[in-house]
Amino acid sequence: MTVTVDAGRCIACGMCAYAAPEVFRVIGSASTVIAQPEGRDPRVRDAANGCPVNAIRVKG
């Protein structure tokens, strides 16, 4: 599973950092991937599906 955040779309709402704090952190005006998840983490998919501006992409 590979996760990316489109900083240009991100509004830094923090929902992803709340859902998966070991993967996401809000830094400045955008969320950042601080570590790729090990294996398939359903919380990461939930964060991507819940992103209000669809800035999170999950592959794999």
Rank of each mutant, 00 (worst) to 15 (best):
V53D: 07
S29H: 12
V23C: 08
V53A: 11
I56V: 04
S29T: 13
V33N: 12
V33Y: 08
D46M: 14
I34Y: 06
I56Y: 06
R40N: 09
A17Y: 00
I34R: 05
I11D: 10
V44Y: 01
A19N: 04
Y18I: 14
E22M: 12
A55Y: 07
C13L: 02
G14Q: 00
P42W: 01
A17I: 02
K59N: 13
G8N: 13
V44F: 00
P42Y: 03
R45F: 00
A12D: 04
P21M: 07
G28I: 09
D46K: 11
R9I: 06
G14D: 01
T32A: 15
D41W: 01
Q36I: 11
G28C: 07
R40Q: 12
F24E: 05
K59R: 13
V58Y: 02
A47T: 00
N54P: 00
A19P: 04
M1C: 15
A48Y: 03
R9M: 08
P37M: 13
M1P: 08
V44R: 00
G50M: 10
T2Q: 14
E38V: 09
G28N: 08
R25A: 15
S31W: 02
C16K: 02
V3G: 05
R43P: 00
V26G: 02
N49R: 10
M15Y: 08
A7I: 03
P52D: 13
G39M: 10
N49Y: 09
G39I: 08
V44D: 01
A7L: 04
P37K: 12
P21V: 15
P37R: 07
V33L: 10
M15E: 12
V53M: 12
N54T: 11
A48R: 06
C13W: 03
V3Y: 04
G60N: 09
Y18F: 09
C51W: 02
A20R: 01
I11F: 06
G39L: 12
K59E: 10
V58E: 09
M1Y: 12
V5A: 10
I27H: 13
G28L: 05
A12E: 04
V3A: 04
P21T: 11
R9V: 09
E38H: 07
G14I: 00
R9G: 07
P42K: 05
C13F: 05
V23E: 06
V44H: 00
P42S: 06
K59T: 13
D6L: 03
S29V: 10
V44C: 02
C51E: 04
R43E: 01
P37H: 11
K59G: 10
G50W: 08
A12P: 00
I11L: 08
C10W: 01
P37N: 11
A35R: 14
G39H: 08
A19I: 07
R57G: 11
P37E: 09
E22W: 10
Y18L: 11
G14F: 01
V58Q: 06
A35I: 02
V3C: 05
P52S: 10
